[in-house]
């Protein structure tokens, strides 16, 4: 059994790497097809485009795109993602700094989402068809339909403007480095509450509707009715029989949610001025900072692939009816 799982994981990993390779090739060439010039910032009335051309050649962007691609791939395998045209720093350094921010807010939101969704799902199942169930269901639909930036603005309005509890932007205070460890942690929490809340609220609104639906469906299945007729308490049926079965579809949703969470992080980081990968990617797209865009796409692609991969493995683990061959395909 263990060997089978190992083979599945290995096969999926090889597939995933292949997917990443296709992704980066497509993104690299697409980026170079985009109109716009990252060296335009060096055009000046005094020099015309002379300085821009000089710097373009220094960066190796005067070569053919295919040559640039081969050189770039060679360097990526050496762990070198190149140099940012805009920030003039190694891309790996920029990515390292920003991915920590992105992961810290998205992972926290992801965990919070699970911690909220499951108990809330059980609560809604318990009160299925009642007023509270209807209200939460409709509210979740409204929040899910609203774009993430709108949720962020509403939270800023109440959290920062009306009640003045949380800062509306930045990740840390200006005097962060003068604080001790506990103060630093509190400062981070203070600044990241609203962004994490934005992601959590939008994610919960998305997943709760699936979990609720799944819980209700399972609760109407024959084996549950049989359990009820045997006099097993409803609480035990919900927790030990309905929930584990409903979780299978919820895990699938979680896999998809990783991708959606990343796109929401992109917006959230921009609204809250957080120096994460989302903000880095958005600003790099506007300035046509090719090396950074491609590296960001690789990272986010990898995260989505890994997320889906973990979800598949988990489904296979929890669902005895699931075939490993299907997962490994």
């Amino acid at each position: 059994m263990r060997g089978k799982i190992f083979r599945v994981i290995l096969k999926r990993l090889v597939n995933s790497l292949f997917m990443v390779l296709i992704l980066i090739s497509v993104v690299f060439f697409l980026m170079h097809l985009l109109p716009g010039d990252p060296f335009q910032q060096y055009y000046s009335p005094k020099f015309g485009d002379d300085l821009a051309e000089k710097i373009r050649s220094e960066f190796g962007f005067d070569k053919q795109v295919s040559v640039q691609f081969i050189n770039w791939i060679k360097n990526v395998f050496k762990g070198d993602f190149g140099y940012s045209i805009v920030y003039k720093r190694p891309v790996s350094l920029l990515l390292g700094e920003s991915i920590l921010v992105t992961l810290s807010i998205s992972l926290t939101a992801f965990i919070l989402q699970i911690l909220i969704t499951i108990p809330l799902g059980l609560f809604l199942l318990k009160h299925s068809g009642k007023k509270i169930d209807l209200i939460i269901d409709r509210l979740a639909l409204v929040i899910y339909s609203a774009p993430a930036f709108l949720v962020a603005i509403v939270l800023i309005y109440f959290g920062s403007i009306v009640f003045k509890i949380f800062p509306s932007s930045q990740m840390i205070s200006y005097n962060f480095y003068e604080k001790n460890l506990i103060e630093k942690v509190l400062d981070l929490l203070h600044h990241l509450t609203l962004p994490v809340l934005t992601l959590t609220v939008t994610s919960v609104s998305f997943s709760i509707r699936y979990l609720r639906e799944s819980l209700i469906n399972v609760s109407n299945e024959g084996f549950v009715i049989a359990l009820r007729s045997n006099g097993i308490p409803e609480e035990i049926i919900r927790r030990k029989h309905i929930l584990p079965n409903a979780l299978i579809s919820y895990i699938t949703i979680l896999g998809l949610e990783i991708g959606s969470l990343l796109s929401k992080t992109l917006i959230t980081e921009t609204v809250f001025s957080l120096p994460g990968m989302g903000k880095l990617m958005v600003s790099s797209i506007f300035t046509r900072d090719y090396p950074v865009i491609v590296a960001c796409v690789i990272m986010s692609g990898l995260m989505v692939i890994i997320g889906n991969f973990i979800a598949d493995v988990l489904i296979a683990r929890f669902n005895p009816k699931f075939s490993y061959e299907v997962v490994s395909r």
Binding site: I156, S160, S168, S169, T270, V271, S273, K279, S283
Partner: peptide
């Protein structure tokens, strides 16, 4: 403070 969004700057 680097705040790219105009409305955020104004609100702050």
């Amino acid at each position: 403070k680097v705040i790219t969004d105009y409305n955020s700057r104004l609100n702050q």
